[in-house]
């Protein structure tokens, strides 16, 4: 049982770190600010979720787990608000996104 938990934690942490690094690479590979927001979104959502879930498995049903869960919930509540505020501010300031096909973006 403990071995299984350890294995699950390892898998989750590895997945979380991989997703985090993917997001970090994406922040450098994507061409403009608006697409970079999506890459940063990967690190804020599933990467953080995997890592915190992996830690929760180690802590068991304790106050520590509740705190980890709270951190996760808080991140998932605030990160979209931050991204939205960021893109909205960028859009208002007139930063133009690089679009592949010019659609109705007015």
């Amino acid at each position: 049982m403990a071995l299984l938990l350890d294995l699950l934690t390892t898998l989750l942490l590895a997945a979380g770190v991989f997703l985090g690094i993917s997001g970090g690479v994406g922040v450098h590979r994507f061409p403009d600010f608006y697409s970079r927001v999506h890459a940063a979104g990967v690190t804020d959502t599933l990467s953080a979720g995997c890592i915190l879930l992996g830690l929760m498995l180690q802590a068991g049903l304790t106050l520590i787990s509740m705190k980890l869960l709270f951190i996760l919930l808080f991140l998932w509540y605030t990160s979209p608000v931050a991204s939205h505020a960021l893109t909205r501010a960028a859009e208002h300031s007139g930063l133009k996104p690089v679009l592949s096909e010019p659609r109705d973006a007015s």
């Binding site: 942490l13 770190v17 985090g20 690094i21 970090g24 690190t43």
Partner: peptide
């Protein structure tokens, strides 16, 4: 290992 990975990010 996880801490180092996070440091890379």
């Amino acid at each position: 290992a996880a801490a180092l990975g996070i440091l890379v990010v």
